[in-house]
Design a binder for these strands. Structure first.
Length: 862
RNA sequence: GCCGAUGUGGCGAAAUGGCAGACGCAACGGACUUAAAAUCCGUUGGGCUUUAACGGCCCGUGCCGGUUCGAGUCCGGCCAUCGGCACCA
């Protein structure tokens, strides 16, 4: 590529200003009590989702959100806010460890290198982070508090009466370990052999690991769990008050998956061939969960999940073999095969019967893999007339259909999906009732007769919180005689052992188990060898940013109150990041936050008040950027050619922040041209080819049309930054620059306003030009960042004459210019006198004339 | 299947129910230049029309309908694309 002349010297001014900002601590946000803290200033906390510092460095997706928050941060500072705008590193996690295993380098080393690279790249883009607040989740001074928070969770329980997390000391039951918010359970988990670890449900996509895409199997293991389900209702209900995209709220609601219904108990009647004999061995009843208790009369069979332990107790001797065969066949299937919707229903009869409590009918009990052990009670009542899946099963195995609610003029089978229009039939207690009434009545009846009770179930599972990996926070827990205990707070941070070999063991035993000395805690106690998942550190980093150096507390009370609480509605004022965290990070962080809030450590119940997701940036070919397509754009390459300011502005000019949009180098060039035009408004080249202040820059007054466009721009840019409509803000500044370019004289006052408006977008360019103007013209002393955001004067936007649109039957016919004070009658008269309007009306009769003052006249005729 | 988002020129896009396509890209024309690049100025949704000239007329925001003096925008019903969830009882 031939060396072309830079349109303006960004390669000189960008490093210059980045150095000045560092030296003068331009973007340090003082905490209450700190030097230079202004108590009168309102606070604004604007946060990015901190990155995982991968070896590949930044891609163009990172700076999209970061530029948006940086513009808001710089704008709010100019408005006089005390702005918290921090950055840090989510540095624990699988990729660093996988890389370490491959290269033999310790993950701490690669992590340190990657962070240095990321940080240099971010600085190169000119972000105004307060680097004095940098945090790193793998720093013992940080994860000390991650471990401490785990202990707070471990030492609490959810009190159903207060609906709050409380210290475990307020629990008066026999076994506190049964109610802790962090507990150990032997549960079927997602085991990934390739990664050598278990994974949370949220980390498994289509039966494969989210990281690496390796296959994941179900396997029972003893694991640490966090009781997030206890907070399910609050996590659901408190979404309502948040300023988040509806789509993200919907994703979380969907993930929590609240269903209201009832638990119903069906007594087991006896085995086939042993009519009506009460069984002697166990299994007195099967409990099901249903969202449709009003269809109880239609239950013609029952189904247990194949894994349900009750199967062993109820299966009749003659059926033991066929049931056993079916269960083995199902166990051999992967999750993916099992959940394949297209496949036919399968199942096997247990030989046992249950009694429908509503009508005392004997109904057969089957097992089938369309019933899942993990949801509800692992058992259902089969109601073929009201559930398509049950109908399919009943048809295949001939299990009868009794309509309970029937649509008018439809057969029972046709009634499925139309039940709402009918009223109950074939249901002695419920006949004639609407669905809502029938549900209420049967629920009351079940409770009165002790056959069941109202119940709520969630799709949300408790959070599987342990991993069999090396590169994570060790649990601050020891084991003594088979029981877990919290490590004393004084022993935090608990650092992992310095292992030479940190590869997964392949057996499910964590790598830390290899560190025999480290494991041994005392004569009688040993350490927990699992580690925490990557999510742990990111669950609370936004809190640490408020007070990152505090060695006494995870966050000081006063800084927390100031940055997170104080003003209503509180919390992080603006949080921008990728949509991929809709149900993982954002749900986990809310959970931790609520527990800490309940325990009295925090001043607001929700962490993130306003959330925005930036859209993905695609390659120039419209495909997702990927090495495979060779369409990956490296931000540093772009900055090399066009400069950081052009890069920032282009990313914001591409289109709406939240929208997915393709990259265009031509587009970058266009924005770069715009910035060069701004430069040349103020600078010109002398004979020697040096840039000097342009002779056209003068201390003159702006003319009327300049004043108008200037104030329109102040108004538009201010409003657009508030709504994050950066693309239209830049458009408006282009209009202003075009107007100034055409003017023979460039008034200093107008230029200064332009520079202030553009400063959040192109901070280097505007800083340099501001300084250049200050050298010759009074009134601009000091850095641009110390000045005030301009305000527009509405009176200067008012036009003397306005253009009025003339329509006939809603179609544009002409435009006329009238005085501002034209009355409605005058407008009407002007319209009727207009030749084009008269032509359009022709011989028709005028029925009506609509006059919208200052806008239009519409003549309706036919 | 359920939930959510999106659909406007050659392209990225803009438009409190009131002039559709601001701004930018690309393209074309012009100025400057020995020439090119850069820069500056202009034209640019489609169609029809001999308009001498200021032009004139029709169509146009995924599709069908509705509300309204007036719909890209509001309402109802479809279609397509993308994303999420999915045998959750």
């Amino acid at each position: 590529m031939n060396e072309r002349r830079k349109p303006y010297p960004f390669d000189r001014i960008e490093p210059k200003w980045q150095a000045i900002w560092d030296e003068t601590r331009s973007f340090h946000a003082p905490n209450p009590g700190e030097e230079n803290f202004g108590p009168a200033k309102p606070k604004f906390y604007v946060l990015d989702m901190f990155p995982y510092p991968s070896g590949a460095g930044l891609h163009v997706g990172h700076p999209e959100g970061y530029t948006a928050t940086d513009i808001v941060a710089r704008y709010k500072r100019l408005l006089g806010f005390n702005v918290l705008h921090p950055m840090g590193w989510d540095a624990f996690g699988l990729p660093a460890e996988q890389y370490a295993i491959k290269t033999g380098q310790h993950p701490a080393v690669t992590t340190r290198e990657n962070i240095a690279k990321f940080k240099a790249q971010l600085k190169r883009i000119g972000f105004s982070y307060d680097w004095e607040r940098e945090v790193n989740t793998t720093d013992p001074a940080y994860y000390k508090w991650t471990q401490w928070i785990f202990l707070q969770i471990y030492n609490s329980w959810f009190n159903p009466e207060t609906k709050k997390a409380e210290p475990i000391s307020s629990y008066h039951g026999a076994d506190p370990d049964a109610v802790r918010l962090a507990y150990v359970a032997e549960v079927p988990v997602n085991w990934c052999q390739e990664l050598g670890t278990v994974l949370a449900n949220e980390e498994v996509i289509d039966g494969k690991s989210e990281v690496g895409g390796f296959s994941v199997v179900r396997r029972p293991m003893r694991q640490w769990m966090l009781r997030i389900t206890a907070l399910a209702d609050r996590l659901l209900d408190e979404l309502d008050g948040l300023n988040w995209p509806d789509s993200i709220k919907a994703l979380q609601r969907n993930w929590i998956g609240r269903s209201e219904g009832a638990e119903i108990r069906f007594p087991v009647a006896g085995s086939a061939g042993l009519d009506d004999r009460t069984p002697e061995r166990g299994a007195p009843a099967i409990t099901v969960f249903t969202t449709r208790p009003d269809t109880l009369y239609g239950a013609t069979y029952m189904v247990l999940a194949p894994e349900n332990p009750l199967v062993d107790q109820i299966t009749a001797d003659d059926y033991l073999e066929s049931i056993s065969q079916y269960r083995s066949a199902i166990a051999a299937k992967s999750d993916l095969e099992r959940t394949d919707l297209a496949k036919e229903k399968t199942g096997a009869f247990t030989g046992a019967f249950a009694i429908n409590p509503a009508n005392n009918e004997r109904i057969p009990i089957w097992i089938a893999d369309y019933v899942l052990m993990g949801y509800g009670t692992g058992a259902i009542m089969g109601v073929p007339a009201h559930d398509e899946r049950d109908l399919e099963f009943a048809r295949k195995f001939g299990l009868g259909v009794i309509p309970v609610v029937q649509a008018p003029g439809k057969t029972p089978e046709e009634s499925i999906g139309y039940t709402d229009v009918g009223t109950a039939i074939n249901s002695p207690l419920l006949n004639g009732l609407s669905r809502a009434d029938a549900t209420a009545k049967i629920s009351d009846w079940l409770e009165q007769h002790d056959h069941g009770r109202r119940d709520v179930r969630y799709k949300l599972r408790d959070w599987l919180f342990s991993r069999q990996r090396y590169w994570g926070e060790p649990f601050p827990v020891i084991w003594r005689e088979g029981k877990h205990e919290a490590l004393p707070e004084s022993e935090l941070p608990l650092e992992p052992p310095a292992l030479e070999d940190f590869k997964p063991t392949g057996t499910g035993e964590p790598p830390l188990a290899k560190a025999k000395d480290w494991i041994r805690y005392s004569e009688s106690a040993s350490r927990e060898t699992n580690t925490m998942p990557q999510w742990a550190g990111s669950c609370w980093y936004y809190l640490r940013f408020c007070d990152p150096q505090n060695s006494k507390r995870f966050v000081g009370e006063e800084p927390e109150r100031y940055w997170m609480g104080g003003g209503k509605p509180g919390g992080v004022d603006l949080y921008i990041g990728g949509v991929e965290h809709a149900v993982l990070h954002l749900l986990y962080a809310r959970f931790w936050h609520k527990v800490l809030f309940d325990l009295g450590y925090l001043s607001t119940p929700e962490p993130f008040q306003r959330l925005v997701n930036q859209g993905m940036i695609l390659g120039e070919d419209g495909r997702k950027m990927s090495k495979r397509w060779g369409n990956v754009i490296d931000p540093l390459d772009v900055i090399e050619i066009y400069g950081a300011d052009a890069f920032r502005c282009y990313e914001m000019f591409m289109g709406p922040l939240e929208q997915m949009k393709p990259w265009s180098m031509k587009g970058v060039e266009g924005v770069s041209r715009f910035l060069a035009r701004v430069w040349r408004l103020i600078m010109e080249e002398n004979q020697a080819g040096e840039w000097i202040l342009s002779s056209e820059v003068q201390e003159a007054a702006s003319d009327k049309s300049q004043v108008k466009v200037l104030h329109a721009t102040i108004k538009k840019v201010t409003g657009d930054i508030e709504t994050l409509s950066f693309n239209t803000a830049i458009s408006q500044m282009m209009i202003l620059v075009n107007a100034l370019t055409n003017a023979p004289a460039k008034p200093v006052s107008a230029l200064r306003v332009l520079l202030l408006l553009l400063n959040p977008f192109a901070p280097h360019l505007t800083s340099e030009l501001w300084q250049t103007l200050a050298e010759k013209f009074a009134g601009g002393d000091g850095e641009i960042t110390r000045h005030r955001w301009p305000e527009h004067d509405e009176r200067l936007l008012v036009e003397d004459e306005i253009e009025i649109v003339l329509q006939v039957n809603g179609k544009l016919r002409d435009k006329i210019t009238v005085g501002l004070d034209a009355t409605e009658a005058a407008l009407e008269a002007a319209a009727l006198a207009n030749q084009k309007v008269r032509n359009a009306v022709g011989g028709q009769t005028i029925r009506k004339i609509v006059v919208v003052p200052k806008k239009l006249v519409n003549v309706v005729a036919n």
